[in-house]
Design a protein around this nucleic acid. Structure first.
Length: 881
RNA sequence: GGGUGUGUAGCUCAGGUGGUUAGAGCGUUACGUUGACAUCGUAAAGGUCGCAAGUUCGAGUCUUGCCACUCCCACCA
């Protein structure tokens, strides 16, 4: 006996355990089945499940479950990212609570602390993914700091270094002064604001009274100025190019140089050049061999390269102080508001400073070109396709990738320095020492580079590092790489997708995945981005607790058209919880009516049209769902399934079955019981990828099964389709709808049994009505159907497929209401008739449109005119009362 | 500045290659019968398909222009 309702809170964990016990998640490399593989986008070890994960992993789970049922051997490779910055920040915060900093522990001890944290509190998200139903091969869970993955990182780094693709360079990078590390361009967020532009005068050397006015938004960088640039074409300044101006306060002479960077149209046409603190100025500095004076320390405070009174100031204080002094010197000109963007760190929210340091870079020119070509020539397909344009644009303007971070938690750069600074880049310290001994001719003390790598460097290797690489002979690597499809949000296309493409093509000489399915962002019910500041975040675990994982998955998937954003909120999830309940109740109906698949049952042999009909509808739904999943249109797939279950199976088939079950034909009952059970089983299969828990539960509770639903075959009933019977049942259904509509509009009480009289039915129609009398009567509460040759007085009428259907009401008719109803029906027709007559009278249309279109128009016109005539007659009859 | 989307019912969205009277879900309204389900059923109302031209016998669908909004990238002395 089925319970009154499904209780996800207790059932889901049990079901998940059973899947695990039956080892249904593990890939089966020896199975001989075709392989299908997905790597999970590794969530941060610090992460907790949010709606983005829920969507991303629901999609992957659908694909994996569907493919398994389709006969594939599936590897869904799970794992987590060590998330350098995020994790270090979490642990540092914990230490701060004890009043300590990482420096109190030192690097080694601190890293131990992080590992401790990871073992104790990290990776909660893994269990949360399980709550969602994710069918990953959990025993293969990997972590980007695992020994194997770390070995992969070292190997790639050394190889790239030796290939000249990784190099050290002193250049301007984005400096996060809170974390005291470099970050990549992608980790910087530009925010618009209105700042101020200040104008000030620099005296020209040896020409008393002459000044050059420069404009700046950052007066505090003033001490780093090493030139003023003007355009060579600018008449105002032509004569002082090559001369010096005096930098006020410090009275340092700096040259006036001609450079294309200076635009005569902008500002004053003269630009102060601060090579160590501005990306454009840096380039100008390189072009003119200007000194680069760094005036900031790692905390973004002014350093010893500025006059003592300014040292130690933060940039804002220094800015005001500089302006004050300029004013005192009488060199201040004016200021005006200036719209501008300011860079902030995406993790810390502090202002990012361009900062001159030694960093490690990846030369992306060559590997970027290959990654670009792999998409251009179609080796890697993207869904939706227009994501290619975004990818192309970025790949064609690739900048060197700054991969070093001045953190402790992460993959330490495998680089050692000799006493003279000579670089030894090897996978182990031992190898470095051996090389050093060779180089120096004696054993030498080496110092290891303290930098760690950008987290995305290791996640860039994820597609193959999780599969055993660098062991080229790993059976998983051989079998499941390249992976079948990558499922991810378009927000990390540059961070991760592009990097995986580059790194995989470099290391493996092969693409990491054949297809990429991009999905949109999850937003709240009103379509707003979820954020802490708006406090509109919705916790997937809360939704799962409230409505069940199946309901949450459905409500996400039902909107997951390729690339579209997904809106989530209580009312949406509730709707799919209701759907789950509907499914449960339909199972109860089956059980109550003793629906089981009889041993001698075969779907090809059904005799009742309604049974042939439901099998055909099932087949049509299956084809649509399969097709939609294969093209990543999860919205179509789920909507088709939803409509088939609720709108076809429950609303019509179960209702049609009732008169059969209450009737006295045992053969009809038997066939219908079997068919219903048969179709219901297939429904469980079709829904399983989307709603794995409730379907598995029903599968278990509705019959004795030799295997779990998850391990069963995807439904395929195409060979049992029966178009002829299906058309007949559809016709009867439409007739029921027509009768119901009249009843409802004429306020005939829902319970009342009515008689109907039909005029002008063809022989075929009479035959159909005869065949479906029981069903039509039951579903439209009709107790008597008769065919007549003369119209009835005192009846309400409608026209269906050319037949006049009349409901005699013997004086109870609300004449005005019936007149209104008929008028409304006729109005709808007359508009169409008029338009169509016009079209058919148009010679251009008749001569140019294809014959089929014209014939269809003529046919539907004739039908409409016929209905019109019959409705008009009904109207006239009623008007006479 | 470059790129990419979006604009269809109150809301959220479907609507290959142009062709009957433009659909769904939710919401709304009315009415609720029998024995799966009120987490339900039946029915109805609701749209000049962003605007304007153009191509065409015919445009939600194609072209051009415009308007509004989303997102991404770059720049901003």
């Amino acid at each position: 006996m089925l319970d009154k309702q499904f209780n996800p809170a207790t059932a889901e964990a049990e079901i998940f355990k059973k899947w695990q016990q039956n080892n249904l998640f593990a890939a089966q490399p020896q199975s001989g089945k075709p392989a299908f593989s997905i790597i999970i986008p590794p969530p941060n070890v610090t992460g907790v499940l949010h709606m983005g994960h829920a969507l991303d992993n629901s999609i992957q789970d659908v694909l994996c479950r569907y493919k398994r049922m389709k006969g594939f051997d599936v590897l869904w490779q799970p794992g987590m990212d060590h998330a350098g910055i995020a994790t270090q920040v979490v642990v540092e915060k914990l230490l701060a609570k004890e009043g300590k900093s990482r420096h109190d522990f030192g690097r080694e001890k601190f890293i131990e602390k992080v590992w401790e944290w990871k073992e104790k509190s990290g990776g909660q998200i893994i269990n949360q993914l399980k709550a969602l139903g994710a069918s990953c091969d959990w025993d293969r869970t990997r972590f980007t700091m695992d020994e194997g993955l770390s070995a992969a990182v070292r190997k790639i780094f050394v190889k790239m270094f030796k290939d000249g693709l990784i190099y050290k360079d002193k250049r301007l990078v984005n400096w996060d002064s809170k974390l005291q590390t470099a970050v990549s361009d992608l980790e910087v967020i530009q925010k618009e604001t209105v700042g101020t532009m200040w104008y000030m005068n620099y005296p020209v050397e040896n020409e008393p009274g002459r000044f050059i006015t420069v404009a700046t938004t950052r007066p505090e960088t003033f001490f780093g100025d090493t030139a003023v640039a003007v355009s060579a074409e600018d008449e105002r300044y032509k004569d002082i190019i090559g001369k010096n101006v005096i930098l006020p306060i410090v009275n340092r002479p700096i040259p006036v140089v001609a450079d294309e960077h200076a635009d005569p149209e902008k500002g004053t046409g003269a630009v102060k050049i601060t090579p160590a603190h501005d990306f454009n100025d840096f380039e100008v500095g390189r072009r003119h061999n200007l000194p680069m004076i760094n005036i900031l320390d790692v905390n973004a405070r002014l350093n010893e390269n500025v006059p003592a009174e300014f040292q130690g100031m933060d940039t804002m204080t220094a800015r005001m102080k500089v302006l004050e002094r300029i004013k005192e010197l009488g060199l201040y000109v004016k200021e005006e508001p200036n719209p501008m963007t300011i860079p902030y760190g995406d993790r810390t929210g502090v202002v990012i400073e361009p900062y001159l340091t030694d960093q490690w870079f990846v030369d992306t020119k060559e590997i970027g070109r290959r990654a670009l070509e792999a998409v251009e020539d179609g080796q890697v397909k993207m869904y939706p396709e227009n994501m290619k344009n975004t990818y192309y644009e970025w790949m064609r303007n690739l900048q060197p990738w700054c991969i070093s971070r001045q953190l402790w938690w992460g993959h330490q750069v495998p680089v050692w320095y000799g006493p003279d600074g000579h670089i030894f880049c090897e996978e182990t310290e031992l190898e470095a020492k051996i090389e050093a001994t060779k180089h120096y001719g004696e054993e030498t003390v080496l110092r290891r580079d303290s930098d760690v790598l950008d987290t995305w460097f290791s996640s860039g290797l994820w597609a193959f590092s999780t599969m055993g690489w660098p062991n080229e002979n790993d059976e998983y690597l051989k079998r499941y790489y390249p992976t079948s499809v990558l499922v991810t949000g378009f927000d990390i296309i540059f961070f991760w997708v592009a990097r995986m493409m580059m790194m995989s093509l470099y290391a493996m000489e092969e693409i990491p995945f054949k297809e990429i399915c991009f999905h949109g962002l999850v937003r709240d019910e009103k379509g707003q981005k979820m954020s802490k500041s708006k406090n509109n975040g919705i916790d997937p675990l809360e939704m799962i607790a409230k409505y069940g994982a199946d309901a949450l998955r459905m409500s996400l998937l039902v909107q997951a058209g390729t690339g579209r954003d997904v809106l989530i909120g209580d009312s949406r999830v509730e709707a799919y919880r209701n759907f789950a309940t509907k499914l449960w109740n339909s199972a109860k109906f089956c059980e109550m009516n003793d629906c089981k698949v009889a041993e001698d049952y075969h779907p090809a042999g059904v005799k009742l049209p309604m049974n042939a009909w439901i099998i055909t509808k099932l087949s049509e739904a299956e084809k649509e769902i399969s097709n939609a999943i294969e093209t990543y249109s999860f919205n179509d797939a789920t909507q088709t399934a939803y409509h088939f279950v609720w709108g076809v199976f429950c609303d019509w088939y179960l209702e049609m079955a009732k008169p059969v079950f209450y009737g006295d034909s045992e053969t009809a009952k038997k066939e219908t019981r079997s068919t219903m059970a048969f179709v219901f089983d297939k429904i469980l299969g079709l829904l399983h990828p989307f709603m794995p828990f409730i379907t598995e539960e029903l599968w278990d509770k509705t019959a004795e099964r030799s295997e779990m639903l998850m391990a069963s075959n995807w439904p395929n009933v195409a060979e049992y389709e029966n178009a002829v019977e299906t058309r007949k049942v559809d016709w009867a259904i439409n007739m029921v709808s027509a009768i119901r509509s009249v009843r409802s509009e004429m306020n005939i009480s829902a319970g009342a049994k009515i008689k109907i009289r039909i005029q002008e039915a063809t022989d075929e129609q009479r035959g159909l009505i005869g065949e479906f009398t029981q069903m039509i009567s039951f579903l439209s509460r009709v107790e008597e159907i008769d065919f007549v040759t003369e119209p009835l007085k005192g009846a309400v009428s409608t026209v269906y497929d050319g037949m006049i259907i009349m409901i005699p009401l013997e004086g109870l008719i609300d004449v005005d209401k019936e007149k209104m109803r008929l008028t409304k029906e006729m109005d709808a027709l007359s508009g169409f008739i008029e338009r169509t007559l016009g079209q058919l009278a148009n010679e251009a249309f008749v001569s140019k449109a294809p014959e089929k279109v014209i014939n269809d128009k003529r046919a539907s016109l004739a039908e409409a005119q016929d209905s019109m005539k019959k409705l008009q007659e009904a109207f006239d009859r009623i008007a006479g009362l």
